Amino acid sequence: MNAIVWIAAVSLAAWLWLLLAQGLFWRTDVRLPPRADPGDWPSVCVVVPARDESTVLPYSLPSLLVQDYPGRAEVFLIDDGSSDGTGDLARDLAERHGGLPLTVASPGEPPAGWTGKLWAVRHGISLAQARAPEYLLLTDADIVHAPDSLRELVAAAHTGGFDLVSQMARLRVESVWERLVVPAFVYFFAQLYPFRWIAVRGSRTAAAAGGCVLLRTEAAERARIPDAIRQAVIDDVALARAVKRSGGHIWLGLADRVDSVRPYPRLHDLWRMVSRSAYAQLRHNPLLLAGTVLGLILVYVVPSAALVAGLVTGNVAAVVIGGLAKLVMTATYVPMLRYYRQPTWLAVLLPVTASLYLLMTVDSAVQHYRGRGAAWKGRTYARPDAAFDEQ
């Protein structure tokens, strides 16, 4: 057996392990767990950090204001230094739509050691504490909620005894680049953080989706949220880790009726979204970066390369082994494409998408060592994520 066959065999072994031993990450049936009405519905404060969100706020904020929630609830929109009239627009939307009470406030510029979003979240939680809510809903300004979203989240948390319930909002997939990149983003996330493992008490796997996080106030105080994760760029994962390590029971799954309306029409937009935090995910470790690059090549590029090389040279073993690895890879991606209502033939392009993510990750490291760190909406963080050091 020549080198390409051996490498292809390692790739196939990796895919068989991912298929069978990585928490069934490829399945998309992890949705809100069974739930029952609490009877006496607890109070909830919704905290929405917003910076220059005037284009998406007309879709997202009304969906929160008109929540059909039987208990006491109100919304706090924290205008994080917007220059596009986000705060004024929020007040105008509240006057037009009515519904839940809305408070619009601004925390000022974040002090050193805080990301802008978490400084805004801290301000929102501080305002909410005056209402003594039992739960906090942390949701982004681009997230549209179905009218019963809050009711369903609270019922799930109450029934399952969860301190944190998070839903991975369905991201927008309209442009060509969104169709190619976005479903893979969630697929890779689930591969890193298998949803089934997250809900297991005592497991080390912890993650949340920052667009929709229902958090028990007591658990937030116990985990010192958000102060304990104040420097985290990947704040949702850091939040979930802090809650779980403080003894909290957490859950994460895919959403049916919680959607992001933020557009990423160009490759540049998606590239920036991924690269701003990819190297932080690797703890700014060059060895982890090298291992990730080699791993992506081995797992996603080698099967197609072995298949083509085998066809060209007539190497039957390379064709069979490379073809089997590619078949497993393609089959595991199909459920995510179906969840996103995309044609299943896009699964054959997963190696191309994985190669793009490889380049985005390398670019993230390059930007870090150039001192540019994570840049988002006019702010740059020289060291994108210290959460791993603090946890």
Results as ranks from 00 to 15, higher is better:
residue 57 L to A: 13
residue 374 A to H: 01
residue 53 E to D: 10
residue 3 A to P: 02
residue 289 L to R: 08
residue 148 D to G: 00
residue 218 E to D: 13
residue 214 L to P: 07
residue 220 A to L: 08
residue 41 W to F: 15
residue 105 A to K: 11
residue 337 L to A: 03
residue 272 R to N: 13
residue 189 F to K: 04
residue 371 G to H: 02
residue 244 K to L: 11
residue 364 S to N: 11
residue 267 L to N: 03
residue 112 A to T: 11
residue 92 D to C: 07
residue 369 Y to V: 12
residue 255 A to L: 04
residue 88 D to W: 02
residue 134 E to D: 08
residue 329 M to Q: 15
residue 324 L to K: 10
residue 331 A to G: 04
residue 93 L to P: 03
residue 107 P to C: 07
residue 135 Y to V: 00
residue 352 V to S: 01
residue 91 R to W: 10
residue 77 L to M: 11
residue 105 A to L: 15
residue 155 A to R: 01
residue 245 R to Q: 15
residue 206 A to S: 15
residue 388 F to T: 04
residue 220 A to D: 08
residue 35 R to C: 11
residue 260 S to A: 13
residue 157 A to Q: 02
residue 214 L to T: 03
residue 21 A to W: 15
residue 16 L to H: 07
residue 340 Y to G: 01
residue 307 L to G: 05
residue 316 V to Y: 09
residue 268 H to C: 02
residue 141 A to N: 04
residue 101 P to T: 08
residue 84 D to H: 07
residue 310 G to R: 06
residue 246 S to I: 08
residue 88 D to M: 04
residue 203 S to H: 12
residue 86 T to V: 06
residue 107 P to K: 04
residue 250 I to N: 00
residue 292 T to I: 00
residue 304 S to A: 15
residue 319 V to K: 05
residue 163 D to M: 06
residue 87 G to P: 10
residue 50 A to H: 13
residue 197 W to Q: 12
residue 331 A to F: 06
residue 255 A to C: 03
residue 64 L to G: 01
residue 219 A to L: 11
residue 360 M to S: 05
residue 361 T to M: 06
residue 2 N to L: 05
residue 234 I to C: 08
residue 167 Q to K: 05
residue 151 R to N: 05
residue 216 R to W: 07
residue 290 A to R: 07
residue 129 Q to E: 14
residue 283 R to M: 09
residue 243 V to W: 06
residue 107 P to E: 11
residue 98 G to Q: 04
residue 345 W to L: 05
residue 5 V to Y: 06
residue 35 R to F: 11
residue 2 N to T: 13
residue 342 Q to E: 02
residue 18 L to G: 00
residue 286 P to A: 06
residue 133 P to V: 05
residue 339 Y to K: 01
residue 130 A to F: 08
residue 40 D to C: 05
residue 159 T to C: 04
residue 115 T to F: 00
residue 158 H to N: 12
residue 291 G to W: 07
residue 316 V to F: 14
residue 229 I to N: 11
residue 245 R to H: 14
residue 148 D to M: 03
residue 101 P to M: 09
